[in-house]
């Protein structure tokens, strides 16, 4: 289990990294934390001609407060997000989710840019980007552009980037909310999720004024459930609300059977988590 031969460069600027990608004619790969890429190299499932290491680029790792938005540099490690007081106060759903990402050693190296780009359908950060409707800033040969999560996550393990583009920053809007929850079930602590849901609610004069719902592990990409959000806002709030919400959520997904769980079991799990998540969110006092 040794990788095929590859070259290696360690540029010190994003521009130089883009240039290295351009020079590789689509055969190059970016190396961030290496936590997903290296196994693929060792299995020879990825055979890049050259690895362009992002770790030597200064200024790609930061968590920045921009009032109603939080900007995160692409090379920011999972562990930094997990322990950031700023994230805890402004993006509490992310803060709660981060400890479910893999294990400590992996969180020490894995990066947000790598996680989004790898686009695992059961990974937390792609789901969080979808939940928050983050703005993904990428840089390519012709400059910078922004991409929404809906565009970015094309399919399982597939993003919409051009081969010469690099994710440089992710900007998360701070949500107006007075209740939220993140729920996940994995076989073991730190495993990829069998099912997971994030919920946020904003109360109005009567019932809810706004709601946000995103799920993962139950489709080829993380998903925002607009219909469930609308249905939740329209619901009367009583003891039966979590059950009704759970039914709506489940009706919105059609997962596949796989080695770890059947479609019915995943739906069952998601339903249970949806109920629990809404109960938690509604129990919070603004």
């Amino acid at each position: 289990m040794k990788p095929a031969k590859f070259d290696y460069v360690s540029p010190s600027t994003v521009e130089a990294a883009v240039a290295a990608l351009v020079a590789s004619n689509g055969e190059g790969k970016l190396l961030a934390g290496g936590q997903s890429l290296l196994p693929l190299l060792n299995f020879r499932m990825a055979r890049p001609s050259i690895l362009v290491d992002l770790n030597g680029i200064e200024g790609l790792s930061y968590i920045e407060d921009r009032d109603d938005r939080i900007a995160v540099g692409a090379l920011t490690r999972h562990r930094d997000l997990e322990h950031s007081p700023l994230i805890a106060s402004k993006l509490p759903v992310m803060s709660a989710a981060m400890r479910h990402v893999a294990h400590l050693a992996i969180r020490n190296r894995g990066t947000i840019g790598g996680s989004l780009s790898h686009a695992d359908p059961a990974a937390e950060l792609p789901m969080l980007a979808t939940f928050y409707d983050a703005t993904i800033l990428v840089q390519g040969p012709s400059g910078r552009r922004t991409i929404t999560p809906r565009e970015f996550f094309v399919d399982a393990l597939t993003n919409c980037l051009e081969p010469e583009e690099i994710v440089v920053e992710i900007e998360f809007p701070v949500l107006k909310q007075d209740g939220w929850a993140f729920e996940e079930v994995a076989r073991r602590f730190g495993d990829f999720a069998l099912a997971s849901i994030a919920v946020s609610v904003l109360r109005g004069p009567s019932g809810l004024e706004a709601a946000r719902v995103a799920v993962m592990g139950v489709a080829d990409t993380p998903r925002r459930l607009d219909e469930a959000e609308a249905a939740l806002v329209a619901m009367e709030l009583d003891d039966r609300t979590p059950d009704r919400f759970s039914e709506v959520v489940v009706s919105q997904v059609s997962p596949n059977d796989d080695l770890h769980a059947s479609a019915e079991y995943r739906k069952h799990l998601l339903g249970q988590l949806a109920k629990r998540a809404l109960q938690t969110a509604l129990a919070m006092k603004g």
């Binding site: 076989r187 073991r188 602590f189 730190g190 495993d191 990829f192 080695l259 770890h260």
Partner: peptide, 16 residues
């Protein structure tokens, strides 16, 4: 073999 890696072949870890 469908469970050829330790992602798919699940063994107990400390919390289990």
């Amino acid at each position: 073999l469908l469970t050829a890696t330790l992602v798919d072949y699940v063994i107990p870890s400390a919390p289990e």
